[in-house]
């Protein structure tokens, strides 16, 4: 958090007091990472804005359910996770995955691309052997940049348990790459 900027709890309190600009500031602060999360979990680019908007509508309507001591970003991720689950159920369990390969970050080192691709494939197979919770913790930490306290809020666990799951995932995945 840059110095001088209001914290999330301050913005939430301001919004509860009727300050619409505080809600806008929260949207601007968290929408980009939520969009990246939704995109990386299979949402189409064309529906990202609607989905992110829905996350914030659910969040503001259910703010009473947010424990002020838990990181707001983690709680928003929890809503996004549930939103994807709801859509998945409504879609009769069909997975709405769009191939993401073209969107991936371009490698800075084209010469190592083949080796990197092979390593990514081994990593994908390794991820498939993890428990869903370990996989979620690992991806939220590495791909989405959440801290353990935010992961704990997103996955309804504790920061200590999130850390244990992360280390377990790292240990197994390192073996897959050796």
């Amino acid at each position: 958090m840059a110095p001088g900027l209001p914290t999330d709890p301050q913005l939430v309190a301001a919004w509860r007091g009727g300050d619409e600009a505080a809600a806008s500031a929260l949207v601007r602060r968290h929408a980009p990472v939520l969009g990246r999360y939704l995109r990386s979990r299979g949402a189409a680019s064309s529906e990202l804005e609607d989905l992110v908007q829905e996350v914030f509508i659910r969040a503001f309507q259910g703010l009473d359910g947010w424990r002020g001591d838990a990181p707001l970003r983690g709680w928003l991720f929890r809503i996004a996770i549930n939103l994807l689950r709801d859509r998945h159920r409504r879609g009769g369990g069909r997975i709405m995955v769009e191939l993401m390969e073209d969107d991936r970050v371009d490698p800075a080192d084209p010469a190592g691309e083949l080796e990197a691709r092979e390593a990514r494939e081994r990593l994908q197979s390794g991820l498939a052997t993890l428990s869903p919770l370990q996989r979620d913790v690992f991806r939220l930490r590495i791909e989405d940049g959440l801290g353990y306290d935010e992961i704990a809020a997103a996955l309804e666990t504790t920061p200590g348990a999130a850390r244990v799951h992360y280390h377990h995932a790292v240990r197994r995945l390192k073996e897959c790459l050796e």
């Binding site: 949207v27 601007r28 929408a31 980009p32 990472v33 969009g35 990246r36 995109r39 990386s40 680019s45 990202l48 804005e49 992110v52 993401m100 969107d103 991936r104 970050v105 490698p107 990197a116 390593a119 990514r120 990593l123 690992f138 991806r139 590495i142 791909e143 989405d144 995945l173 790459l177």
Partner: peptide, 14 residues
């Protein structure tokens, strides 16, 4: 290697 699977921040109409 895992971080390279991270998708870029999408451009959203905030």
């Amino acid at each position: 290697i895992a971080a390279r699977g991270s998708v870029p921040i999408p451009e959203l109409d905030l």
